[in-house]
Design a protein around this nucleic acid. Structure first.
Lengths: 137, 137
DNA sequence: ATGGGCCTTCCCGCCATGGCAAGGTCAAGG
DNA sequence: CCTTGACCTTGCCATGGCGGGAAGGCCCAT
């Protein structure tokens, strides 16, 4: 199986497969005499694992850890759970951060006329003038 | 006012001030004979504006737009509001994406024993095996 | 033998920022 | 005057995950 077929079978682009190999996330596969990479079903399975982990927002480093645990039949599920719950905490921290931005901005936008006049509480807030309707915090 | 003083006064690092100048976000300031950048209070005000916009998650491009509107006394507040509400939509889309990840992961983690046994629904999900049955690898 | 589709490596771009290095400048103190 | 140390200058490298593209090799069908 060439890299293109593995890419189509796994949903990971050929470019990314090479990249994952280069950073040590997946092992270097065998090569043909013409130096083409050769993949098998297990490789495709691992690539799909990576794709799914990435789609859940795990970094490549975390994905590498998970891949290691996946391959380790003697793993403790607690180790997997620790990675997952830490990532949930990271996600929730990021969500809270974005929500704070959105909340502030929505509040400011609500108080903006949104017409042809130049007066704008959004710009007032950004400029730090603290003029009329600044909603900080 | 040298760049270091402007950095301390604005909360934007000297490195970033130079970067913002290089990408055209802020205008190139005057220089001393020794080629040192010279800033005044208005520059610091603009830098604080940028810092606040960045802290609300606006990209540099959006920040540039907002800076232009800020400086344009004939602006229509509708233009500002449009940038802000679009950004709110972007933020909310990102939030929804992260929440979907967190939801899935929390669900999986809840069903993981988290003990010394190797069986783990998180890995099962990532490996695409399906839900609970296959513990073979 | 030629065309096209695949493969290879290598480099550049994104975004926003930090870090480091080599050199110039300035003010204070010995 | 000279040193010291804090500051400034430019420039390059790195991050994280990709995408794009160039230049060249390989394979298969016509």
């Amino acid at each position: 199986m060439n890299i293109g077929q593995a890419a189509r079978a796994s949903g990971v682009s050929a470019k990314m497969i090479r990249y994952y190999e280069s950073v040590g996330l997946i092992a270097a596969p065998g090569r043909t005499q013409a130096n083409y990479r050769v993949y098998d079903a297990a490789d495709v399975h691992a690539l799909r694992f990576v794709r799914r982990a990435r789609s859940l927002g795990f970094s490549l480093a975390e994905t590498q850890t998970l891949l290691g645990l996946w391959r380790d039949r003697a793993r403790a599920s607690a180790d997997v759970k620790a990675v997952a719950t830490q990532h949930v905490r990271d996600l929730e921290a990021k969500i809270a951060e974005l929500q704070a931005m959105a909340r502030t901005l929505k509040h400011l936008a609500e108080h903006c006329h949104g017409d042809g006049r130049p007066d704008c509480p959004i710009l007032d807030d950004l400029s730090g003038d603290g003029c009329c309707a600044t909603a900080k915090g």
